[in-house]
Design a protein around this nucleic acid. Structure first.
Lengths: 169, 169
DNA sequence: ATGAATGCAAAGGTTTTGCACCCCC
DNA sequence: GGGGGTGCAAAACCTTTGCATTCAT
């Protein structure tokens, strides 16, 4: 017997709004994409627009397999190979960025809002919160400096509990 | 043509000593394992000991595929399925913990030293440093509190540069 | 016309699982 | 003896790739 199909999108991943902040518009995404494409002599295509649309409308924090599933629902005409191939393009266009890692180890992506933030994931309700703390950022630079390193990026994931459900012993 | 086989262990993962701190002994691992086994009515086995031995002696930060490779070298009698199956056991026994995520998205494990620390990975030399900052920890609890959450664990990975190699443009 | 992008299917790689057998309690 | 643990192989999943075709410029 195969293990049960996982829920399509754990609730924390499907939020359309993060924590109140204004996010990029779809037009922003198109602009980023076009500028990247022309910069690298690449061509416009329907598929990448459709993929961006699926992400913009239906996904917030997602793995590539998540995205494949979503696309099969909303844009079944797009082959999964195309989705895998568009990943690197959307990444280097600055449209997506890696945000955190799954419980199961899959890399999770999100729209690159250009507003740096880190994540708190609630183990009880599976909600994903975003936060930003300049104080912490400052500390981090100091830590890196003490190793003779200069910081580029960091990935910071907090796991917490809201006690929404009873804890099991 | 398939892409080149990756190095067996990127240099940063094979360190036998972290940053000078004393680490758990092998006996500690055995004790943890035994107490977990008896607590859950599980049975002792040679394989899990052998796997712990491989980890203790040859691995520092590793993915499960890394571990499979290492075991094939040092304990070729252990089936890879056994290694995959022992992962959850060693995790819940508190012997291993997830430490960070690969560039390619693989979850990386390490011995759970009970000394909490976070990681700085140098993109130039691939070294993995460990650090601990109480000041940051305090900030984090405050952040979580502001969301009504209580912090359990967190995963914090800094990516930095030491300029050991010339940067490419 | 040229080369990028796609769909399809196959190949590669990783992880899980079914089952018979073994071994610890 | 009963039930967990293991090895083996198959299955399931995930990701990349080759190739013919389509499409954008």
């Amino acid at each position: 017997m195969k293990h049960g199909r996982k829920r399509l999108l754990p609730c924390g991943r499907a939020r359309s709004v993060p924590n109140g902040k204004a996010q990029v518009s779809f037009q922003d995404l198109i602009n980023k994409l076009n500028s990247h494409l022309s910069k690298h002599r690449l061509k416009k295509s329907y598929s990448r627009l459709a993929i961006m649309d699926v992400i913009f409308r239906h996904a917030r924090h997602f793995s590539i397999p998540d995205l494949v599933q979503l696309a099969q629902i909303h844009r079944p005409d797009i082959a999964f190979a195309t989705i895998y191939r568009s990943g690197p393009v959307l990444l280097s266009a600055g449209i997506l960025k890696k945000s955190l890692s799954d419980d199961s180890g899959h890399t999770i992506y999100e729209l690159d809002s250009e507003v740096h933030h880190d994540h708190i994931i609630c183990k009880d309700c599976a909600e994903v919160f975003e936060f930003h703390s300049p104080a912490i950022e400052t500390q981090l630079s100091m830590v890196a400096g003490s190793y003779g390193l200069s910081l580029t990026v960091h990935e910071h994931v907090l796991w917490a509990e809201c006690s929404y459900f009873q804890r099991e012993s």
